[in-house]
Amino acid sequence: MASGAGWSGADRAGSGGTRRRVLPSRYAGADQGRYLVVVLVVGVVVLGAGVVIWSDIVPISLVFPLLVVSGLVLEPRRLAIVLGATAAVVLAWGPVSMISPQRVVGVFVAVLLVMWQAVLIARSRAQIGTRGLGGDRMFAELRDRIVESGRVPPMPAGWTATSCILSAHGDRFSGDFVLAHLEDGGERLEVALVDVSGKGTAAGTRSLLLSGALGGLLGAVPPVDFLRAANDYLVRQGWAEGFATAVHVELDLRSGLYSVASAGHPAPAVYTSGRARWSLLDGGRGPILGVVPGVSFPRQSGRLERGDALLVYSDGVVEARDRDLTDGIDRMLGVAAMSVLRDGDVARDVCQSARSGEDDDRAALAVRRA
C-alpha cells in the first residue's frame, strides 16, 4: 500500500531492522526571498530608529551597504519594499540631522544614486536568474573552461606548441578562442582557432556557446569535415551576428605532415628553417562560418621538417585602424622571425606586438618541430 509519508528504503529492507521515518525539512521549499526582504526591512527600520534617536552617533551612511546587499540578493519587486523603507528612514532623518540643508540635499541625492544602482544590479541578476554573486561565479567558471580548452596539451619529444589569447581592453572574455586536441597516443594534433563576430565581452556569450560546441566536434568528426560541421551548426543557430571565422589544422607528429583549411580567416604562416623565413599559406580558403549552408572547405597540405614552424592567428594580430593589412602581416612575420631566432614564444610575441593593441581581441597558436 502506498504511503503518504516517506520511509527510508534501507530501513524497509530488513524485517528485523529498525524503521526510521524520513520527514521533510521544516523549511523545504521555503521562499528565501521573503525572509531576506523581512530581514533587510527590519535592518533598515532599526537603522532608522538609530539615526533619528541617536543622530549624532549612528551615521545615515549605513544605509549604503544595506542598499547594495539588497540589490544583490533581492529581485526587483521585493527590492522596491526595501527601497521604500529606506526612503522613509532618510526622510525622517533629514529634519533631525542637525546639519545644513545643503548637506541634507547632498545625502538625499547620494541615497537616490545608490538606490538606482541597486535597481540596476537587481535587474541584472533577475535577467540571468541568480542572486548574490552566483552569476559571477558561473561566468568565471565558463571563462576558465574556455581558457582550459585552448591550453595546448603536452607535446611529445621533438615538438613544442604555445598559444596566446589577449582580449580587447583587458576584458576577461574574448571573441577569439583556441581549441587543441591531441590523440592517437600523442601522434596527431588537431587545432582550431576561431574568431567570433564582435570583440571583448560583447562577443563573450557567443564565444562561450561556440567553444563548447566546436570543442565537442574537434576530434569527434574527421578533420576534413570539421569546418563543414561547424558551419552547419552556426547556420542552424540563426544568430543576427552569428558569423565567425576559423582555421583548422591537422598535424601528424610522426611525419610532420599537416593539413590546413580556413573559413574566412587570415592565412596561416609556415616557417622554413632552411631559408630562415616565414611565408603565408594562401590556399585552403573557404567562406566564413554561419552564412552559407552546405559549403565545403578546401584544404592545403605540407610538411614541417626539423626546425620548421606553423603559426595560426586571428585578424586582431595583423589588422589596425589606418594601417594597410599587408603592413600588419609583414610586421607580424618580422616579429615571428625574431622570436624563432631567439627560441621565444612565437604566439605570445606576435599577440603582444600587434598594432591593434587593446582595441581588438588577439589570438595565436604556434607549433614548431625541433
Rank of each mutant, 00 (worst) to 15 (best):
Y258P: 08
L79N: 02
G216I: 04
V152C: 06
F297A: 14
F297G: 09
G158H: 04
L166P: 01
G6Y: 08
V46P: 04
L182V: 04
L253N: 14
V63S: 09
V109P: 05
A320S: 13
P223S: 10
G17T: 09
P222K: 07
G135P: 03
G150Q: 04
F139T: 10
V73N: 00
A122C: 06
L218T: 09
W159P: 05
L227A: 06
Q300P: 12
L23P: 02
L189C: 05
G302A: 06
S211C: 08
D327P: 04
G185W: 03
G43P: 06
C351R: 11
V22Y: 09
G219M: 09
L289G: 06
A269P: 04
A267N: 15
P156T: 13
S279Q: 14
D327I: 05
F64N: 10
V318L: 07
T205R: 06
G212L: 06
G284P: 11
A180C: 14
S211W: 01
T326F: 10
S167L: 01
S255G: 15
A230Q: 13
A354W: 02
R306L: 12
V22A: 11
T130I: 00
D361G: 05
W159L: 06
R369E: 04
G4K: 04
V119G: 08
R145M: 05
F108W: 11
M115K: 01
V41K: 08
L179S: 05
G29E: 08
H169K: 11
V63L: 10
S353Q: 14
Y258G: 09
I53W: 12
R21G: 10
A240I: 13
A10D: 15
F177R: 02
E190D: 12
G106V: 00
G6S: 11
V295Q: 14
V41T: 07
V38L: 12
V249D: 05
S207I: 00
H248M: 15
V346D: 03
G290A: 11
I121H: 01
P76W: 00
R77C: 00
A49E: 09
A87L: 13
W54K: 02
C164E: 13
G215E: 02
S273N: 09
D144T: 04
I99G: 05
L209H: 15
V73L: 15
F177H: 08
R137M: 07
I81K: 01
G48C: 02
R12M: 11
W278S: 06
A168Q: 03
L67C: 14
L289W: 13
A203K: 04
G216D: 07
L120T: 03
H248L: 15
V107H: 06
L40P: 00
V247I: 02
I121L: 10
G84I: 13
L234H: 08
A276L: 04
